[in-house]
Computed example of a mutant assay.
Amino acid sequence: MRSIELVLTSDAEATVRAVWDALVVADLPSMGRSTSETNAPHVTLAAGEDLPVPGRLDAPVPASVRTGGVLLFAAGPGRHVLGVSVVVDRALLAFHEAVHRAAPGGVDTALPGRWSPHLTLARRPRDTDLPRMLDVLASVPVPDELGIAGVRHWDGKTRTVTPVV
């Protein structure tokens, strides 16, 4: 799988990593357990098996994103993906559409009109872990606004990152 992602400023990344670390300390599932060099907090804009590195984008990269509430996606029986939603404002919507014009062919769930932008906190926690995870999130909240540093193309097959903007 390949993806095109918004990456956070160093301060914003540190705040999300603090949440990841708090989940690890609580012995819960967390993105902080991944040791991959390319593992970084991000907002996926597009994803697909053959997604190209986009060339010129015809909309500016948003300077920041606003966070919303906790988000759960189904990930199999008794499992979910736990994330924090990202509010879609006009600037983010315009940029998301520009990414898809420049790099068509993404999966349906990332297309304009179907996209649920978020920051992933944990993949596949058990339903029984969720109450404790919510307690951790209450103690280490994600800020209302996170700065954006740029855009990257991630190739899961080669585990490489290409800066886009």
Results as ranks from 00 to 15, higher is better:
66 R>T: 04
1 M>L: 11
133 M>K: 02
117 P>H: 06
12 A>Q: 04
121 L>N: 06
41 P>K: 05
43 V>I: 15
46 A>L: 00
85 S>R: 07
124 R>F: 06
8 L>N: 02
152 R>S: 02
40 A>R: 15
104 P>H: 11
39 N>T: 15
92 L>M: 08
77 P>D: 11
145 E>C: 13
141 P>C: 06
99 V>H: 01
114 R>Y: 07
156 G>H: 13
163 P>I: 12
78 G>C: 10
64 S>P: 02
2 R>K: 15
43 V>Y: 07
144 D>E: 14
3 S>A: 14
89 D>T: 11
79 R>T: 04
94 A>V: 05
113 G>E: 10
42 H>R: 15
86 V>Y: 06
101 R>D: 12
129 D>T: 04
138 A>P: 04
15 T>Y: 00
153 H>G: 11
86 V>I: 15
73 F>A: 15
80 H>G: 00
98 A>E: 09
81 V>W: 15
163 P>L: 14
150 G>L: 10
82 L>E: 09
56 R>V: 14
83 G>I: 02
131 P>H: 02
95 F>E: 00
28 L>Y: 06
42 H>I: 09
11 D>S: 13
152 R>P: 01
78 G>D: 09
85 S>N: 03
147 G>N: 10
110 A>K: 11
108 D>R: 14
125 P>R: 00
32 G>Q: 03
55 G>S: 11
62 P>H: 05
154 W>V: 13
1 M>K: 07
87 V>R: 13
14 A>E: 13
43 V>S: 08
44 T>Q: 00
9 T>A: 08
64 S>D: 14
164 V>P: 01
89 D>S: 12
22 A>T: 08
96 H>G: 11
116 S>Q: 12
100 H>W: 11
18 A>N: 07
111 L>M: 06
32 G>A: 07
163 P>W: 12
24 V>R: 06
123 R>K: 11
82 L>G: 06
105 G>I: 05
38 T>S: 14
35 T>K: 13
9 T>F: 04
73 F>Y: 13
60 P>E: 06
53 V>D: 12
72 L>P: 04
20 W>H: 06
137 L>W: 06
63 A>R: 15
105 G>H: 08
125 P>H: 01
17 R>M: 02
21 D>Q: 13
7 V>N: 02
102 A>W: 03
57 L>M: 06
154 W>H: 15
154 W>G: 03
136 V>K: 10
47 A>S: 15
27 D>Q: 08
1 M>P: 09
120 T>K: 04
38 T>M: 09
33 R>G: 14
62 P>L: 05
73 F>K: 03
90 R>Q: 14
134 L>D: 02
131 P>A: 01
61 V>E: 09
102 A>I: 04
104 P>Y: 12
69 G>W: 09
150 G>P: 04
14 A>L: 05
45 L>P: 00
133 M>E: 04
40 A>L: 10
103 A>R: 01
73 F>L: 15
129 D>Y: 04
38 T>E: 12
27 D>T: 02
89 D>W: 12
121 L>G: 06
31 M>T: 03
62 P>D: 04
132 R>A: 14
47 A>R: 14
92 L>E: 03
143 P>M: 09
54 P>M: 10
120 T>Q: 07
109 T>Y: 13
139 S>W: 01
134 L>C: 07
69 G>M: 09
99 V>C: 01
97 E>V: 07
130 L>E: 01
